[in-house]
Design a protein around this nucleic acid. Structure first.
Length: 889
DNA sequence: GGTGTCACGTA
DNA sequence: CGTACGTGACACCT
């Protein structure tokens, strides 16, 4: 179709395409970020551009933008392009964002004072054609048709959206308008252009105009022969000749602008991956980000990727008897980077690397590595050490001396953006992209990195991140990392390897009970409304509730009205007497409960290992506050509140060879931390008294003797106390306690009357965070809060609540991690056979070896209660039983 | 097949 | 309009 020898110049009218994209997509209602920023124009434009890059494979690329509505055309004719209405507020700002995205993609964009984007396109097209380019002009303005010739093609968006572009060459223009491209402006001048607010000659349409042009060629010539034209059209032409002349002047595009870039300057360049991630990430365009990055990868494979590859040191494959000497010869101040290779579940070797040398130790040579791996004084550096320690352990190898984990390091330095993969961290810390092979491809474009080269990337990342961590501003982070996170890694690895024993029979029995229950509720729900419906589909439920049953609308969600348990409870209350509606609602709620629990059981059953135990995975830096998270499966959300739920809990048992489970949890640790941090004398006193906290607080808030605090009073105070640490306001408090906002307000006032320092503290935390940009736990763990100074109210309020909660939740997490280290150390010291198995934020679960109960309880209680020295005691509650539920206290 | 939304379990 | 998480079903996208 096109001359493959010719370079292709693709130039796009940014403004008009962005505008069309906006209108095509705005009605979908998608394309809004959480912060309320519309992104239709950015998305639509980039979509179109990526498609063009793929289809047309241009070698050169540029985008032109209007600078403002003002141009030399408006100077001549003030009404030019008038009447277009105000720019929708949702559109404004998107052009700037689009330009940011283009900059990040290294796509040149051009503006020119007093001229329109089309003039820039005209100039570039003229230069490009002259310099031997095949030129593709993408414009939503028909005036661009005048640019078409053998070398220049116009792609014009069809009525619907921007993804469909119609290709106009000379023949296509002639077929449609019966004039050749260079004559198109003559035709447009006579007919007029409504979009530009340029009226043409009355009663002259394209057919008449084309006829005249065929005869005389140009507007000037036609006007010169105006006397020869008969009829109304002729009359109008004579009377309105100035219109035609003016239109012709205005619609002539300028082809000789002085521009900062010529066609050759627009050669395509690789994208700036970091910047692209930043810009598109902020716009919450995940899919688009992937598409753009993919584009970048194709580029990288051709250019920079090859460079990065060649810089990696040659990989030496070691035989068993060469390993020790090779390691001894390496200079690696931080430790040697290690990458354990597992393929298809099988241990497949180990990669080793310093900054300058890499080696691969295949399984056959592992005997030469065994001692070094187990040597605690031989420093090793990992990305994700815990997993690798476990993989090695499965293969009968013990790894000690993990002195760095770059992922955890990254998580401490930047707790809101923990790198998920080594590639992510390479990108973030080294600002280069690590080649990754796509395992789904039969013949990968990028060959898989061997473990040795992976280790080389780890070594370099470690070097970079360690340098950051070593700076004075990060002294606190360094301490948290060195003293808490690093030593915790082998402790967690041990817990994950041990897993927790499960009684399959208990799970299966409960699953069957729930299955029957779900079926009963399902049938009852269908009977109530007279037809079947997918009870698991919020969308279908909305139809039933609000259309069929005509129930009053509930809280709004992004896609409709909420059907969550709270909303359904409200609906239930709005129904006066028992009817189909209330029966449906009740059945639905019960069905939800049953299916939720049933599903949970099924997930647990699937994750039981061949050893009859469940091995969760903890993410040590999984939460921005410093808490851990648990996944595959999540054992930190096992039900406890309902009777049915607790039966699931009772399936967690002591394994064979152990006498029982022991649970130990911190009592009201967050409230205690709040008392400590705020220094509130009343609250500190409450904890030192050691009596029922909520009763004590209630007696002070309501001014009655502790013995006279009613359950209702205690409840209110309890909700208030807990809510405080989450930034609960009168609205939320009222909603939770089902009281009026005025009452909630009063309760808060009374509360702070007695415990005013708490309020002061919470206020100060936010204030401090605002000026510092971060919060800090008692142990110096920091969490950044960039949104605290955002002009966006919602964003700012959310950040304020998270900020006031962060030191509290985070300090509690620190204390628990420190306690775990102490417990693990003492258990090892005492050579106990008992094992620490699970952590659920403020609770630890142990498997008790025969005869060790007392000793274990002593270690656990002591280590937990002394993990930190606060102005209030850290009280620990211990329970023992055959299963997790029974071990509760 | 991948992704976002909703709902819901825990501390 | 209460913090911190992970998971699964559904609905919609490509």
């Amino acid at each position: 179709m096109s001359d493959p020898q010719k370079p292709t110049l693709l130039i796009i009218d940014g403004h008009s395409l962005a505008f069309r994209a906006f209108f095509a997509l705005v009605q979908t209602g998608n394309f809004i970020t959480d912060e309320g920023q519309h992104t239709e124009a950015v998305y639509g434009f980039l979509s179109m551009m990526l498609r063009l890059l793929k289809d047309e494979e241009p070698t050169h690329l540029g985008v032109a933008f209007d600078l403002s509505r003002k141009s030399f055309r408006t100077d001549e004719y003030a009404e030019y392009k008038e009447g277009r209405g105000e720019t929708p507020p949702e559109f404004s700002g998107q052009v700037g964002l689009l330009q940011d995205a283009l900059t990040a993609m290294n796509v040149t964009w051009i503006t020119k004072e007093d001229y329109e984007a089309d003039d820039i396109l005209a100039t570039l097209a003229a230069q490009g054609a002259q310099q031997g380019f095949r030129v593709l002009v993408v414009s939503g303005d028909r005036d661009s048709f005048q640019l078409i010739d053998d070398d220049v093609t116009v792609l014009y968006p069809s009525a619907m959206g921007v993804t469909e572009l119609k290709r106009y060459d000379a023949q296509a223009v002639f077929d449609k308008y019966k004039v050749w491209p260079h004559q198109y402006p003559e035709l447009a001048a006579l007919v007029g252009e409504k979009a530009d607010n340029l009226p043409g000659i009355d009663k002259v349409g394209p057919v008449t105009a084309a006829k005249w042009i065929a005869q005389w060629g140009t507007v000037d010539e036609i006007l010169a022969h105006a006397d020869e034209i008969k009829g109304v059209a002729g009359n109008n032409l004579r009377e309105q000749r100035d219109r035609a002349e003016r239109n012709r002047r205005l619609n002539a595009l300028v082809r000789d602008l002085d521009l900062p870039y010529g066609p050759v300057d627009l050669a395509r360049r690789p994208i700036d991956e970091v910047a692209v991630r930043e810009v598109l990430g902020a716009l919450q365009m995940r899919t688009m980000l992937d598409r753009v990055l993919k584009l970048g990868q194709t580029d990288a494979a051709a250019t920079s990727g090859a460079i990065a590859r060649s810089a990696a040191p040659e990989v030496r494959t070691l035989a068993a008897d060469e390993v020790a000497a090779w390691i001894a010869a390496q200079d690696a101040p931080l430790g040697l980077a290690v990458s354990v290779e597992v393929e298809g579940g099988e241990f497949a070797g180990v990669g080793l690397s310093s900054l300058t040398a890499s080696a691969h130790v295949p399984v056959t040579a592992l005997d030469g590595l065994r001692d070094w791996l187990a040597d605690v004084s031989a420093p090793k550096v990992f990305f994700g050490a815990k997993r690798q320690l476990e993989d090695a352990e499965h293969a009968g190898l013990t790894i000690r001396g993990a002195v760095h984990d770059t992922r955890v390091m990254g998580g401490i330095l930047s707790p809101t953006r923990v790198p998920a993969t080594l590639g992510d961290q390479v990108l973030g810390a080294l600002e280069e992209s690590m080649p990754v092979s796509d395992p789904n491809q039969l013949v990968p474009e990028v060959p898989a990195l061997g473990p040795a080269t992976e280790a080389w990337y780890v070594a370099r990342v470690a070097d970079a991140v360690n340098a950051t961590l070593a700076t004075e501003v990060n002294a606190n982070a360094r301490r948290v990392y060195d003293e808490i996170e690093l030593p915790l890694i082998p402790v967690l690895a041990g817990m994950e390897l041990d897993g927790v024993a499960i009684d399959r029979g208990v799970l299966a029995g409960q699953r069957e009970v729930l299955e029957k229950g779900a079926e009963t509720y399902r049938t009852a729900a269908f009977a109530a409304i007279g037809h079947e419906v997918n009870l698991g589909s919020p969308k279908q439920l909305q139809t039933v509730l609000f259309d069929e049953l005509k129930l009053p609308p509930t809280r709004k969600t992004k896609t409709g009205y909420s059907t969550d348990a709270d909303s359904l409870a409200d609906l239930l209350e709005s129904i006066e007497e028992e009817n189909e509606g209330s029966i449906f609602l009740q059945s639905l709620l019960r069905h939800r409960d049953a299916t939720k629990l049933k599903q949970m059981i099924e997930t647990l059953e699937k994750s039981i290992g061949s050893d009859g135990r469940i091995h969760t995975t903890y993410d040590q830096v999984g939460a921005a506050t410093g808490r851990m998270s648990s996944n595959d499966p999540n054992l930190q959300n096992i039900p406890v509140r309902s009777e049915e739920g607790r039966r699931i809990r009772s399936a967690f048992i002591a394994g064979e060879g152990f006498e029982s489970l022991l649970t130990a949890d911190y009592s009201q640790i967050e409230m205690r931390i709040m008392a400590h941090l705020s220094g509130d004398a009343g609250l500190i006193e409450a904890f030192r008294e050691g009596e029922d906290l909520h009763r004590y607080v209630g007696s002070h808030v309501f001014g009655v003797a502790p013995g006279d605090v009613t359950p209702a009073m205690r409840n209110k105070v309890k909700a208030m106390s807990y809510g405080l640490a989450y930034g609960l306001g009168p609205f939320g408090l009222a909603k939770q306690l089902r009281i009026t906002q005025a009452e909630a307000r009063q309760l808060m006032t009374d509360y702070f009357e007695r415990f005013g320092r708490v309020r002061d503290y919470l206020r100060d935390v936010v204030q401090q965070a605002k000026s510092d940009g971060y919060t800090e736990t008692i142990f110096g763990r920091r969490r950044p809060f960039p949104d605290l100074n955002s002009p966006n109210r919602v964003l700012r309020d959310n950040a304020e609540r998270a900020a006031l909660n962060s030191p509290i939740q985070g300090s509690a997490a620190d204390i628990m991690k420190i306690a775990m280290l102490g417990v693990a150390a003492d258990m090892a010291q005492a050579r106990l056979g008992s094992r620490m198995l699970l952590q659920v934020h403020d609770e630890l679960i142990f498997e008790v070896a025969p005869g060790e109960r007392k000793q274990l309880e002593e270690i656990v209680t002591r280590r937990m209660s002394t993990a930190a020295t606060l102005d209030v005691p850290l009280t620990v509650q211990v329970g023992i039983g055959p299963d997790w539920d029974a071990a509760a206290h």
